[in-house]
């Protein structure tokens, strides 16, 4: 196996609430190697979303260590974290989170704006990504003019346009019907085949079946970490 992309040791996260300090994550230990496809499961409030936000460098852990590509994330500045989110991580959200005023092509190209690429290169790479998710003919549409499944495809294209090593998806099929959800999952499978490391949060066992490895959270603890049965069989 190759070196771990993610190594987490003793990770904890607490929130300050009116009732006092609420621990959302407690002493999580985990590592993910390149090319893995991990499903993160658990009931709501189990801490899986908090875990994803920390993985995605959107949030910081209160205790413990998170190393991404061998760098300790806790020591990075806000700008360095932004660069990580821009180059190393692609994020796919449950609610798609496209910018409504922009065309699909512009949405996909937006991360490249923050990488400082020139206009022609941005257009080229964004068009290439849209082609990959099968939406070339919709490039100049607005998000409001296409279906939810198509919006999620655009969001995936945007997440991948800067060629990240790690794709994080937080309930990417949560707002979609099961057929569209299957299409999206097929896309994830294909991406993983290409070698992109995927971590996906879901509470649907069907969806989790696509992953090679399943981890389960409960009350902020990582309670189980196992290979998906078909992987064991294989």
């Amino acid at each position: 196996m190759s070196t771990p992309v993610i190594r987490i040791t003793g990770l904890g996260k607490s929130y300050q609430t009116a009732a006092g300090l609420f621990p959302a994550l407690k002493a999580v230990e985990m590592s993910i190697t390149a090319g893995e496809f991990v499903a993160v499961m658990g009931p709501s409030g189990s801490g899986k979303s908090t875990f994803m936000n920390i993985l995605g460098c959107l949030d910081k852990a209160t205790t413990g260590q998170y190393e991404l590509d061998g760098r300790s994330v806790a020591e990075l500045s806000r700008d360095e974290l932004a660069i990580l989110r821009n180059r190393t991580i692609g994020f796919v959200f449950q609610g798609f989170n496209l910018l409504q005023r922009m065309t699909l092509l512009e949405n996909v190209a937006l991360p490249l704006v923050y990488s400082g690429l020139d206009h022609a290169e941005r257009q080229r790479r964004a068009a290439e990504m849209l082609h990959k998710v099968g939406l070339t003919d919709k490039a100049d549409s607005l998000p409001s003019q296409i279906s939810g499944g198509q919006q999620q495809r655009v969001a995936i294209a945007r997440a991948l346009v800067n060629r990240p090593r790690l794709l994080l998806a937080d309930e990417p099929t949560g707002n979609l019907d099961s057929r569209t959800g299957d299409e999206i999952m097929a896309l994830f499978d294909a991406l993983n085949q290409e070698g992109i490391t995927i971590v996906l949060v879901t509470h649907e066992p069907d969806i989790a079946q696509h992953a090679k490895r399943q981890v389960r959270f409960h009350d902020g603890h990582l309670v189980s970490d196992q290979l998906t049965p078909h992987e064991v069989a294989a």
Binding site: G56, R78, A82, R85, N86
Partner: peptide, 16 residues
């Protein structure tokens, strides 16, 4: 605010 969040999530720095 949400737009700002999205932009930050895909790599916008403070100065952007």
């Amino acid at each position: 605010t949400r737009e700002i969040g999205i932009r930050m999530a895909i790599g916008a720095r403070e100065r952007d």
